[in-house]
Design a protein around this nucleic acid. Sequence first.
DNA 1: AACTAATTTTGGACATTGTCCAAATTCTTC
DNA 2: GAAGAATTTGGACAATGTCCAAAATTAGTT
Lengths: 211, 211
Amino acid sequence: MNTEEKILAKALEMFNERGIEYVGLRELAGILGIRVSNITYYFATKDDLVNRISLELSAANEAVLRAEREPGLHTFLDTMRIIFNNHMRYRCIALSLVHILDQNEVISERFKKTQLARRNFLTTSLSILADGGWVAFPDPADRDALASMIALLARFWIPDSRFTVHKLQPPEQIRYYLHLLVALFNPFLTSKGKKETRKFIDEISGPSDKK
Amino acid sequence: MNTEEKILAKALEMFNERGIEYVGLRELAGILGIRVSNITYYFATKDDLVNRISLELSAANEAVLRAEREPGLHTFLDTMRIIFNNHMRYRCIALSLVHILDQNEVISERFKKTQLARRNFLTTSLSILADGGWVAFPDPADRDALASMIALLARFWIPDSRFTVHKLQPPEQIRYYLHLLVALFNPFLTSKGKKETRKFIDEISGPSDKK
DNA sequence: AACTAATTTTGGACATTGTCCAAATTCTTC
DNA sequence: GAAGAATTTGGACAATGTCCAAAATTAGTT
């Protein structure tokens, strides 16, 4: 592990724990046993460091979305589960998102593209799910509203967990919001869709609830 | 208008425009034609200033929730509309909420109480709406999920508007998210409920769309 | 009107932050 | 082993929020 990787790893760890804004470069350098200017050699500004970390998150998420999987509601939910796990691993980014986008031109531009791609993924996914008979939207506007709400949930469940379920452990927080995601689908599920959501719910609550 | 009020007014204006973190005390003082230490005389720390502003928002919202109004879906939606307007007037708070709560013990404690109260308001409101026949929840869990999603929407529509509809003017942004709020109710509306949501939609889109 | 006490305002200092740069050190390569 | 590139260092800089003693202003009392 070279210096650059050490910096990235420790920075992510500390940023997640205490928040990007509250970790000073001098403290980070101190813990790593190096000098501040050694950090700025690899990352000219703190923003660059944050940018790199957020690039890692983007890469992880894009890998998930690029993966070809059997279509269906279960697959869709499972994809979201993996994305939620990524969010948790890089939660410092989600927690400072507004702040970061205000400040960081590079991330801001990339984020806009990401948002468009995610929106496309969502609407096409929902259309496929409707065509395949997993869900049914009485009103076409229901589909768009669902897409908007899923996007909102995916974007803000991490900050929301600070207020709502912050006493829970991370795995339980993820479960809570995955349940909420399923609940969003609930009014539109066909019996075929219900079966897959039940399976999904069983899977995510299984590993820790078994006795 | 005394010095304290001048500081509060100009601070809110600048915080809303550029973000709390990006307005320095020296700049604020400069525009007001006073010295920095004159600000710290009234607000010992910047946090205290932010705290006061967020207190104003809380007071405005609590006044809305305390107001006795005729029960019903239309009243509920209209109450949310007023709250959304308050959020817009104090949008700097919503935009830095996570940041503020991490940093500011006083606001953080008060916020927890506010969240509980808001949650109570939501669940009892939804129960009343169900009892009154405006909405019907096939599954009792639907009601809780709806409450959670409304809470999420109310908490994060302002930051979300940065990403999604940030090219729109504030009034249109509010309309967009009020439509989303109505869409959340959509699957559960009775015909009685449908009538009131239609009326509400007409009202909020009327004033600017009339030709 | 004059004096006193309280309130308000000021100028300057302080520690901390991210950023920057020239010099010193270490590592590669031939 | 020497030359050149890559890395690391120490110290400086401006900007920020915070703080304090002194000056200026205002309010109240005789």
